[in-house]
Design a protein around this nucleic acid. Structure first.
Length: 214
DNA sequence: CGCCAGGGCCATA
DNA sequence: TATGGCCATGGC
């Protein structure tokens, strides 16, 4: 079995299914993807709570941008992110605020259009496509780079180079990509960041850094 | 107190 | 292409 799949199996056996994305609707997932840029999820949750009564595209699009900024304050970078949400909505209005319409699009074309929105970069676009629309693109983030770098994988600097490595080595299934990225985040938060104890890490035997150290 | 979070844009060279 | 600065809150 491919080593990448073996690591996934270990993570899944240990942590179980993560039920990502943590959000009730496709639109909430889009908002969460923007709000979580360089921001802890706990702060994003506070902002989402404030937004709950208004979490529909048309309603949010009509809202004054300063009021929107005030609402998402706990997520940090609130002025920047309020404008980014607006930029997404400007584009989304052109699609009739219809997620069905996005589902019908060619994924490459959709990705290109999302990247054309000021404030939507590679990771945000891919999070929207994978978790918002349920289509198989592999989301790369800082956790992924750090974890697999430690595990001895070649991690190119370019985002898409890394993404293609994962997409080519794994079976192209939305469920797998969904769970794998969620498990990477879960493991990174719980083990690598919170308790950096590589000796007891479930991936210790896979980890070049740990093998050297201990 | 300082560090950092599930990034991305922009100016500059 | 590649650095560096900037955005800002809350948890630890």
């Amino acid at each position: 079995m491919d080593r990448l799949m073996g690591i996934y199996n270990k993570l899944y056996r240990h942590y179980g299914p993560q039920h990502w994305w943590p959000g009730d609707t496709r639109f909430e997932i889009v908002i969460g993807a923007i709000l979580t840029q360089n921001t802890s999820w706990s702060n994003v949750e506070k902002a989402i709570v404030n937004m709950k009564p208004y979490l529909e595209p048309e309603i949010l699009h009509r809202m004054d941008v300063n009021r929107l900024a005030e609402m998402i304050k706990p997520s940090g970078f609130f002025n920047v992110k309020a404008n980014r949400i607006r930029n997404f909505l400007d584009w989304f209005s052109g699609k009739g605020y219809s997620f069905s319409r996005l589902m019908e699009m060619d994924v490459e074309e959709l990705r290109k259009e999302l990247l054309g929105i000021n404030g939507v970069g590679r990771e945000t676009a891919d999070s929207i496509i994978l978790y918002g629309l349920g289509k198989p693109v592999f989301v790369i983030d800082a956790y992924t780079r750090r974890l697999f770098g430690r595990l001895g994988f070649d991690m190119p600097d370019d985002y898409d180079d890394v993404r293609v490595i994962f997409e080519n080595r794994l079976d192209r299934h939305e469920g797998l990509f969904n769970e794998y990225h969620a498990l990477i985040v879960r493991h990174s938060k719980e083990c690598c960041r919170k308790k950096p104890d590589c000796a007891n890490c479930i991936l210790a035997s896979d980890c070049a850094a740990a093998a050297e150290k201990y």
